[in-house]
Design a protein around this nucleic acid. Structure first.
Length: 457
DNA sequence: AAAAAAC
């Protein structure tokens, strides 16, 4: 594979000021300009500005830009433009590492392609297989999906192939090119025409040529508008140093103090996300979990409750760390310090998107200090200490511990129950849509934590 | 490293 050529984008070679570019001056066609107007996109972001001209020329592109900087439109716009010029067959395939992200990308394509009648099919696991087969039979222009289920269709759904494909996009490409996905990705790639354009996009792209090679790019152009591991300037990043055994109390203190905000909490494991969500519910906070042990309908339900604001707190595993665009998110709390700096960057990138402000707060115990320092080094920014009130935390401790015990036994019960009964079918192959089964999503109930009379800060 | 991803 040829080495990616670098586009001139870093600050050291900043071009002289030119008249501000518009979507129109980039040569986009009217139906797209119309849609951009309707969606409210005023002017191109850096990544769109830098990659669009080359994409329209037909180059393969490796796009690297910070979280929330408009990467989806950067690849959707050239694809839609080319589709308009030469509409034939299944035109483009976009792969994403999570189901929710695939769904969100399709919404973007539909919004931007609304004036040209574009048809999209979302092909993800956990959803009804026959329904997807019908969607594919309707000859969509663009298929957006997760690798496993897409491959399943390629192998089993009659009449479905990607032989006419003109574009392949790997969104969150560094993730998709990791080992976990390699088998499915390799198989899919073998079924694609060699003659096509390929786009790889992420905020944290590995430059390992060996990895990129798998995507079989042709003379790709690397468009890098932010350094590989940067966070945006509108994001204020804090840490809280606390003893490990008081983690729950500090966590609840933070949530309580910030209760007016829309918050995403990230936990390391599925069980922990579930547990925190239950603790929050017991203490009266409107929280909802999202992780891979939930059914797809529960996951979608959780997301929509959080998006609509009916739940102010989303407790997630890294299933929600990449790509999801929820404009209302004010604060990201890392209940755990991510082991990998990349994960940190994606997690905190759920807030402060598209120029908006946002905060992140990372809980740091005596065991996590090294990890935090490494993240600061990679991100190139020192975090500030988030002020806490020891007195307030001490006052919470007993109630929080009691809630944690109750949550633990609740989870044990649920586990025993689950083992006794027949395991839920959630492969979408049963023929029945599971959208209405919403039973064990954690619901918030009780009133808020007892208000303390004096409340400094 | 765990989570995610097809089942």
């Amino acid at each position: 594979m040829p080495r990616p050529e670098e586009a001139s984008t870093s600050k050291s070679v900043s071009p002289l000021p030119e008249p501000p570019a518009t979507f129109k001056s980039l040569g986009l066609i009217d139906p797209l300009l119309e849609a951009l107007d309707r969606v409210g996109y005023k002017k191109p972001t850096d990544i769109q500005l830098q990659s669009l001209p080359h994409a329209l020329e037909g180059r393969d592109i490796i796009g690297i830009a910070a979280t929330g900087s408009g990467k989806t439109a950067a690849f959707a716009l050239p694809i839609l433009q080319k589709l308009w010029e030469e509409p034939k067959g299944l035109f483009a395939c976009v792969l994403a590492p999570t189901r929710e992200l695939a769904y969100q990308i399709s919404e973007q394509f539909e919004a931007l392609g609304s004036a040209m009648g574009v048809r999209c099919a979302v092909i993800i696991g956990g959803m009804d297989m026959p329904t997807q087969q019908i969607a594919l039979a309707k000859r969509p222009h663009i298929v957006i999906g997760t690798p496993g289920r897409l491959l399943d269709h390629l192998e089993t759904t009659k009449g479905f192939s990607l032989r006419t494909l003109k574009f392949l996009v790997l969104d969150e490409a560094d993730r998709l090119l990791n080992m976990e996905f390699s088998e499915a990705i390799d198989k899919i790639l073998k079924l694609l025409p060699k003659e096509r354009s390929t786009y790889l996009f992420s905020a944290t792209m590995t430059t390992k040529v060996a990895k990129l090679q798998r995507a079989s790019l042709t003379n790709p152009l690397k468009v890098e508008v932010s350094s590989k591991y940067s966070t945006v300037d509108t994001l204020l990043q804090y840490y809280v140093l606390m003893p490990f055994i008081d983690k729950h109390a500090y966590f609840i203190y933070l949530v309580h103090t910030l209760a007016q905000n829309s918050i995403i909490v990230f936990a390391r494991t599925k069980a922990e996300a579930q547990m925190l969500s239950i603790i929050l519910r017991i203490l009266g906070f409107a929280a909802v979990p999202i992780h891979g042990d939930m059914s797809q309908s529960q996951r979608l339900g959780a997301l929509s409750k959080f998006k609509s604001g009916s739940r102010k707190i989303l407790v997630a595993t890294d299933v929600a760390s990449r790509g999801l665009d929820i404009p209302s998110v004010d604060i990201v709390i890392n209940y755990d310090v991510p082991q990998h700096s990349k994960d940190y960057i994606h997690r905190v990138g759920r807030t402060a998107r598209a120029g908006r402000s946002g905060k992140s707060i990372t809980l740091v115990s005596q065991y996590d200090v090294e990890l935090l320092l490494r993240i600061e080094e990679v991100v190139g920014k020192k975090m500030d200490m988030f002020e806490t009130e020891a007195e307030d935390i001490a006052a919470l401790k007993e109630r929080v511990e009691e809630a944690a015990r109750a949550a633990k036994s609740e989870m044990k019960d649920a586990d025993a129950n689950g083992k006794g009964k027949k395991r839920r079918r959630d492969d979408g192959r049963g023929g029945k849509d599971d959208r209405d089964r919403d039973d064990d999503v954690v619901e918030a109930g009780m009133p808020l934590v007892k208000k303390k009379s004096k409340h400094r800060r």
